[in-house]
Design a protein around this nucleic acid. Sequence first.
DNA 1: CACCATGTTCCTTG
DNA 2: CCAAGGAACATGGT
Length: 288
Amino acid sequence: MPELPEVEVLVRHLHPCLVGKKIQSVSIRRTRIARPNTPEEIVRALLGAKIESVTRRGKYLLFHVVGDRTGKHGVAVGHLGMTGRMYLLAPNDALPPHAAVVLGLGKTSLVFEDTRYFGRFCLDISTIARLGPEPLENAFTAEYLFEQLRQSRQALKVKLLDQELVAGIGNIYASEALHRAGISPFVRAFRLPLDASKRLRDAIRAVLREAISFGSTVPLNSSDTKTDALFFYGRKSDAGAPVAEVLRVYGRDGLSCCTCGGLIRRAVQAGRSTFYCPRCQPVMRRIR
DNA sequence: CACCATGTTCCTTG
DNA sequence: CCAAGGAACATGGT
């Protein structure tokens, strides 16, 4: 469940649950998840430490800790990859089959489960240092976006996935933002005029904000957290009841556009699916 | 069996 | 240097 809104909702849920908790055990059950660190390094950094806060940067979760006797501050970095989830596990609940990391917190445990193991739980902040601005913060202006796009010949949709341009947009919300802005995903970045850059910036922010507020309405108490990805992608709840759709184009190939009624199409860019409405998102700017 | 999948990184080719 | 394409990672759903 891993783009900025899903991570944001997860962080808002986890922070109050974890703040002040002491890490009493650390179990790295898949070595790969800790790369480039070793499990021993993770244990040394976290065992016995107290969690001070959980924050987010782009799609990354930051676990800020302080050593209980050393008083030294540190941070662990989490990334959910494609299929990662984190939630608190009740004492009697069984570990899921793909539990990659388990932090014992006394009564409960924090579980990082990841079926494909593309995620990460490490001490390396070098990737975070390279991230572009947060799209929901003031540094992400239309002028900044325009200036950056001017320097790239890539297709817009592909460029939006560049985490050094802006942090946190993934394959789903890239399509959603372009549809909302009425801009074709195939336009070369440097061709986007300033007024369209403004629309795109506003659309990115609106799409992310809406997804966060939608996700925030989902109850995330303890093991309920397991189901949040299902809610997010507008499929079905655990009970099988249909949940409101948040996505306007993503995954809707062949269905009608909710804005104009035209047919939504799927294309492949940089090896990944792009969904768009040819009518709402013309390649050429309509002048007058 | 086929193809698809919310991400990142590396490698090759042009 | 840039862009594009493919592969890798690893598992599951349809």
